[in-house]
Write a protein that binds this DNA or RNA. Sequence first.
DNA 1: AGCCTATGTCATAGT
DNA 2: TAACTATGACATAGG
Length: 621
Amino acid sequence: MTRLDRSSHSGGGHAKGSRPLNSLVAGHRVAQPPSAPGSRASVQDIDLIDILWRQDIDLGAGREIFDYSHRQKEQDVDKELRDGAEQEDTWPGEGAEALARNLLVDGETGESFPAQFPADISSITEAVPSESEPPGLQNNLLSPLLTGTESPFDLEQQWQDLMSIMEMQAMEVNTSTSEILYDAPPGDPLSTNYSLAPNTPINQNVSLHQASLGGCSQDFSLFSPEVESLPVAGSSTLLPLVPSNSTSLNSTFGSTNLAGLFFPPQLNGTANDTAGPELPDPLGGLLDEAMLDEISLMDLAIEEGFNPVQASQLEEEFDSDSGLSLDSSHSPSSLSSSEGSSSSSSSSSSSSSSSSSSTSSTASSSFSEEGAVGYSSDSETLDLEEAEGAVGYQPEYSKFCRMSYQDPAQLSCLPYLEHVGHNHTYNMAPSALDSADLPPPSTLKKGSKEKQADFLDKQMSRDEHRARAMKIPFTNDKIINLPVEEFNELLSKYQLSEAQLSLIRDIRRRGKNKMAAQNCRKRKLDTILNLERDVEDLQRDKARLLREKVEFLRSLRQMKQKVQSLYQEVFGRLRDENGRPYSPSQYALQYAGDGSVLLIPRTLADQQARRQERKPKDRRK
DNA sequence: AGCCTATGTCATAGT
DNA sequence: TAACTATGACATAGG
């Protein structure tokens, strides 16, 4: 590749034409980059330079193959020229620049993905519909709940998405966490049933699922705090359901294994093999699903270090603190990065970064002031460029606030810029220094004049040095920024040598490319900032969805309780022709499509349940 | 001395 | 086709 060729020589010079002459010259200078302060080459005259260039040009090679050596020569020549009081005044002054604001950008945008999570959550959730799908005969009863579940935000779908993201992650669950998450009192059977013992990872999908079924089946206290306080029958078999009247309903309900009541036998059997025939479970699937959802929620919450119970606090937290550390002032490294960020927070950020942290908005405002080259949408850009005079690259220097542009004394006034001590001054326009950095003429001595010249010499860009050395009769700014027609017109006004024309073209090319590179970098940083903002937004959305999930589960739980109470009450009040209550093991209530409730034999209900259960399964496949 | 950041430069592809 | 722009890659300076 050409890059290899290019990298074979020092600097950014063209790789083509690595002739001995070039290497000789380059080798002569390579240790002395043009910006090296105080570098002084041996005396060489411009004629030699021209000769070398012409040789290269004649051979079809770019003259920059001895870039550095030539630059050095140019510096020397310029020095001599200046010392000779040749002031061409082609380096107009430039106004002082605005200091860059510190845009503190924390490179750490990482959304914290917490602890390992042995359980495969996705498989859990996938298992939900297959095993706990609500029997179809309950559809009419459940559908309002389900629609209520999914309509507002299509939570399930979003949840699946979240789960898929999280499925490779792991977590550690301890009892305390689960208790917090579920708002459950210590010793809540939930903890036991879910095997959420301290330091016990949930790493068995099946067992977790089964446990969750069991937990649900054995204790509705999970979803009903008021029932929670009642004595729990544990995992005993189906308790006799003999509520002869409604007054005993509560006690019966409280002491009854509700799973036995509400889970179909084929499902309940896994948790309780000894259980006899039970009442059909109009809620089992829903409960199971909800419970698993809640487990998933808990898992996610734990993974995220997110406590659903405290979900309501999250939004404020997110609002007050992005969590993305756009304000990287805490980070030591961020200060140095702020150098680039200060120039990069971009013109576009004036519109896009307003929602960012105060730091970034500060930076963006500073950019509104500073404008940008080409990339900026700020109207001030042009004005600034025009006002900045004719010196080569000034626009970008003022706009991007090069640290090299800054007077160290000025920097010292801004503590957050004190670290900006770089001295990339080889591109600095001398005229800018005239106005901004030099002591008043009255204070100048002869020595200081020399120093000043020295300093100016150092501040000049390489191309400016070259232009001077080649006696280019107009400014680099014109070379770079004039429209091509005017540029050509300008060239035609002068009798320029091939070397001069070549240099001018290179200066123009490099100058434009330099601005392009700056814009490119600024865009890149803008992109990063926008991505950070996107991450923020997504985190906020995630927190909001989790909150909504919690709220939904809460209301769902309440509705389930109501339905189950109604079921109990209706079934308990039913009497056969002899005035005896129906056995829940032999009969079940079926909800018809028209809203009516039918009492059907349990076997028939089971058959229908199985039949309807397969449909959604197949549909999923 | 080695690493990091900022910047300039070049090559190249795209406009 | 020429001019310009965008961008990845590299080199260098300076902290």
